[in-house]
Design a protein around this nucleic acid. Structure first.
Lengths: 223, 223
DNA sequence: CGCAATATTGAAAACGATCAAGGGTCGTGG
DNA sequence: CCACGACCCTTGATCGTTTTCAATATTGCG
């Protein structure tokens, strides 16, 4: 699987391992030296603080994902760690024009950017054109698919999820209160249960059909 | 400006010039050979058709933008031309692993992906956490900034916009009817006028302030 | 000039936000 | 070991924004 090969490559290049405790900030937009971080373990949330006081989460960062501090700076995002997060850190050769890297490193970065972009496209359509239940179900199916992939058991029927209902709301553009109601509805409908930090798919086929979930954009078998 | 340099580079590499008439499909997700397209002229709309019959526009493609047919395939997007669109077309060296390209080509592609991603992040927060007026104003300011940049007159107070109200609604996740009302409100408030294919900023500072517009993510002076 | 696409407006309905109050769980310190 | 506070979850009632439906202008194009 491409992701694994990439991560092997990344590890083979060395880099500095660093761990951020839950709640700390992995990167902010007053960043010093631009860096590329590859997440080895843990959950984080690329977040934008809105002037009206609300927050929006543009992406949950999981094991195997890349964080470009230059990109988060450009997009004015902050990335707090949700759990303890371990990363492999490299100087960002893209934004430091003097640096050169072997071709395959460019390809790893491009592959990761493309994957990320495909997910963002899906997310955009999700928030823009689906109702609350669809958005929420979609997000949890996405997270399940990504966690599953990185753990090599794609068809898991449950996964540990350290998110709060507020985190979910901030990612799909709904209020915490409404997320709570939607989760109850899905539980009562026998579709999905999220309690005590565990997401369980009670009827994944029906849920996937209902919320129109398509795994195409989570394909990692390219590049 | 970085974008221009990149486009110079791109042009210098040759590529095939092709023109698509308004209304035709530039790429669909049954694409044959993966290609990288660089838009020389015209407007297009990366669109997702949703199973509920609606459409969502993930991105308007303007002069200077890149289209990766592999990415649109992965994201299940169709890209219809809104006006006549002229592109420079290259085989996609990223998705054809046998191919290699000079380093600066990788850098051009990465820069373009990063710019695009920063915009998507902004767009996501826009749809997720702002109301109808803010979303709409934001989109039009974004388009103005991008058009302005590509034409080298950043502070233009109007620009030609070939979009319909339905296009705008599909891009910000609102109904056509509501876009119409919001445009009327903005016109009556002396903020912005959009009629007969021309967007005019009547009071750009006030509008930008009101909808919380920040040009950071449209910065093209990096890489 | 006439048709088709787009824009405009009103009225009613739906969906989600907000406000408010209470309940559970966990960790810390007395 | 219990008490307390912090944080998160849960539910009800009400309010507001946006959608939907429907009908009528207006514009652009052949």
């Amino acid at each position: 699987m491409a992701t694994q090969i990439s991560m092997e490559h990344v590890r083979s290049l060395g880099g500095v391992t660093r761990t951020f405790p839950a709640g700390s900030v992995i990167c902010d937009y007053d960043n010093e030296t631009p860096r590329l971080l590859f997440v080895l373990e843990g959950w984080a949330a690329c977040s934008k603080m809105m002037p009206n006081g609300t927050r929006f989460v543009t992406e949950f960062v999981l094991r195997g994902d890349m964080i470009s501090t230059s990109l988060t700076a450009l997009a004015r995002e902050t990335v707090p760690a949700i759990t303890d997060v371990t990363v492999l850190s490299f100087p960002d050769f893209i934004f430091l024009p003097k640096m050169e890297a072997p071709t395959f490193f460019y390809r790893i970065v491009i592959a990761e950017l493309v994957r990320h972009q495909a997910r963002m496209s899906e997310r955009l359509a999700n928030i823009g054109r689906r109702d609350a239940l669809e958005r929420t179900g979609h997000l949890l199916l996405e997270l399940g698919a990504r966690i599953g992939t990185s753990r090599d058991y794609a068809k898991c029927e449950y996964f540990d999820c350290p998110l709060t209902q507020a985190d979910i709301g901030d990612a799909v553009g709904l209020s915490t209160v409404h997320i709570n109601r939607v989760l109850r509805d899905m539980r009562e409908a026998g579709l999905l249960s999220f309690r005590n930090g565990i997401v369980a798919f009670l009827d994944r086929p029906r849920l996937a059909d209902l919320v129109d979930f398509d795994e195409t954009c989570f394909d990692t078998t390219f590049v």
